[in-house]
Each structure stands twice: as structure tokens, then as C-alpha cells.
């Protein structure tokens, strides 16, 4: 997997949230959380697994809403950030963090009500293997996002620290069918890619976000969106 070592470094983990989700990145954080909540619906009492949970941004949010959640990541440094966040939010009794390999999950078949991964598939070298394994341990829902190859993100891709795998709709359709999943819902967003929002201050970001939304609503949405959210069923 690309960037494996990078994500394992303590200093990267400690600065991860601040670097990505301050300034215009705040908008991204909000939108991603909304996408997860829209797809996963009311999570109270649900058994949920998050793959590549990193610093626990989504893990903690869903535990706060009553999910029983397991956060799995390869990096001990990222997980220790997650655990601090869970303790601070007072939800550590509903969260278990563990290190593991997304291609070989330590869970039985069909155990979870929902399994999801955010910002994972752009780093995945063997996406079918990972998605198949997510589907194996879910009894209903699998949710994930992709970065799109038809968008402005292509222009920014070379700026990313480790390069990203980009997906077309055909790629995702094939990926789902190879993993025996059925697409249930989808959403597309961000004409201006994350890297752009991350670099600009809040007040300007809000203006660009308005323009971004207007372009998306004009009907060009899916064609120009840099991020897609895919909600699938086993």
C-alpha cells in the first residue's frame, strides 16, 4: 500500500488532523462526516466497522451517536490519536481500536451491520481484495469514497505526497460487481479538490464552496466532482 510508512510516523499522525482539516479543510471534514451520516443513517445500537480509521474522526462521531464501533488501522501512531479523541469525547466504552490488515480482517463472516472506509481506496493497491473482505464481514451495508479520474483532481494529483489511485464510474461498477456488492446510493461532490480547500483560509473557502455547489447543481455535478461516495449492499 502506498504511503504505509508515511502514515505510521508519529509526527505525521500527530499533525494529521491539524494539517488536513483546519482552514478550508474544515469544509471537507464537515462534508465527509455528513456523507457518512447520510449513508449510515441512524447508527444507534448498530455494529459498525471502520477500515483505515486513522485518527478516529468518523469512529468517534459514530460512537457519539450510539454505534458500537470497531476502528481498524495499520498504524499504531494514528490509533493512539484516535484513542485520545475517544477518551476526550467520553465514548471509549463503545469503541475498540485495533491494528490489522484490511485484506485479512480478524472477524467472522457477516458480523457487522455496516462496514465503511473513508479516504482509503485512493491508497489501495488491491481494491477488489479489500472491498471483498469488507463485504465478507458485513451483513448488509458497505460504504466508501473514491477520488475521481474525470475531475480537476487529476491536475492536483501530482501534488499529493504519495500519489493517488483515481477511479472512473466504470472502475467502481467493476469493483462492486467483483466484490459481489450492489450499488444502492451514490453522491458526488467537490469540483474543487481537497488540496485546494486545504490551502485557502476559511472565509474564502466558503465562497468557493458556494461556487462549487452551484457548478454541481448545474447538472455537471457528476462529471466534474472530484469525490464520490458509494453506498452498497451485500
Amino acid at each position: 500500500m502506498k504511503g504505509k510508512e508515511w502514515y505510521q510516523a508519529d509526527e505525521v499522525a500527530q499533525e494529521y488532523d491539524a494539517k488536513r482539516f483546519s482552514k478550508g479543510g474544515r469544509l471537507i471534514d464537515r462534508r465527509e462526516k455528513q456523507a457518512a451520516l447520510d449513508a449510515l443513517g441512524p447508527v444507534e445500537g448498530k455494529d459498525v466497522l471502520e477500515i483505515a480509521c486513522g485518527t478516529g474522526r468518523f469512529t468517534v462521531m459514530l460512537a457519539e451517536r450510539g454505534a458500537n464501533i470497531v476502528g481498524l488501522d495499520i498504524s499504531a501512531a494514528m490509533l493512539s490519536q484516535g484513542r485520545e479523541k475517544a477518551r476526550a469525547a467520553g465514548v471509549d466504552d463503545r469503541i475498540e481500536f485495533m491494528r490489522g490488515d484490511a485484506a485479512r480482517l480478524p472477524f467472522p463472516d457477516d458480523h457487522f451491520d455496516a462496514v465503511f472506509a473513508m479516504r482509503f481506496f485512493h491508497l489501495a493497491d488491491t481494491p477488489v481484495k479489500f472491498l471483498t473482505e469488507m463485504a465478507r464481514v458485513s451483513n448488509e451495508q458497505v460504504f466508501f469514497d473514491t477520488f475521481n479520474d474525470r475531475s480537476t483532481r487529476v491536475l492536483y494529483n501530482w501534488l499529493l505526497p504519495m500519489g493517488s489511485r483515481l477511479y472512473s464510474r466504470d472502475d467502481v461498477t467493476r469493483l462492486l460487481s467483483d466484490s459481489n456488492l450492489t450499488l444502492d446510493d451514490e453522491a458526488h461532490d467537490f469540483v474543487f479538490p481537497y488540496g485546494f480547500y486545504r490551502k485557502i483560509p476559511n472565509d474564502i473557502a466558503d465562497e468557493f464552496r458556494g461556487l462549487d455547489r452551484a457548478i454541481l447543481d448545474s447538472g455537471l455535478g457528476e462529471k466534474l466532482a472530484s469525490v464520490s461516495y458509494w453506498d452498497a449492499r451485500v
Binding site: 495499520i74 491494528r99 490489522g100 480478524p106
Partner: peptide, 14 residues
């Protein structure tokens, strides 16, 4: 370790 189980398969542990 420190409350976190490490279920990485042996070939992925550093």
C-alpha cells in the same frame, strides 16, 4: 500492547 490488540498478520509486522 497498551490496550490495543495488534492483529496484523506476521508478514506485515515491523
Amino acid at each position: 500492547e497498551d490496550g490495543i490488540p495488534n492483529l496484523l498478520p506476521p508478514d506485515m509486522r515491523e
